[in-house]
């Protein structure tokens, strides 16, 4: 039973480290919050489930902590991202349409030139 606990602890530690690395490498606040909350949530939940295999008497308390963390992490990241968007509104405007592929843009330019 302890081997399963060690596996969960290692997975949790790896994902927490990857979450921190993602915050370090991302260029923008909106990207950083995405990397931070998603990786950290999985890391902490897996870590606490790993501890559950070592001390089976603490199962109920650890489950309560997991539920609390799943309920509050998305709300806090939502508020942080929203306040960052309101404070720096002009930095986050896209300069061009990100979903248009390059072929459509080239075809429109050729049609405009032919019409003229």
């Amino acid at each position: 039973m302890e081997i399963i606990g060690y596996i969960f602890l290692t997975i949790g530690a790896i994902f927490l480290f990857l979450g921190g690395l993602g915050i370090f490498r991302m260029p923008d606040v909106l990207n950083q919050s995405q990397a931070g909350t998603k990786a950290s949530t999985l890391g902490i939940v897996s870590f606490l489930i790993g501890i559950m295999f070592f001390y089976p008497a603490w199962t109920f308390k650890l489950l309560i902590i997991v539920v609390f963390f799943l309920a509050t992490a998305p709300i806090s990241s939502h508020k942080i991202t929203r306040s960052a968007l309101i404070r720096n509104k002009e930095k986050f405007v896209l300069s061009e349409n990100a979903y248009a592929s390059r072929d459509d843009v080239v075809e429109e330019e050729n049609e405009d030139e032919e019409e003229k």
Partner: peptide, 15 residues
């Protein structure tokens, strides 16, 4: 404030 926080607040306060 935002709608998300307004409706989740009772659960957080209870906890």
């Amino acid at each position: 404030s935002t709608e998300l926080l307004y409706h989740w607040t009772p659960l957080l306060m209870t906890y």
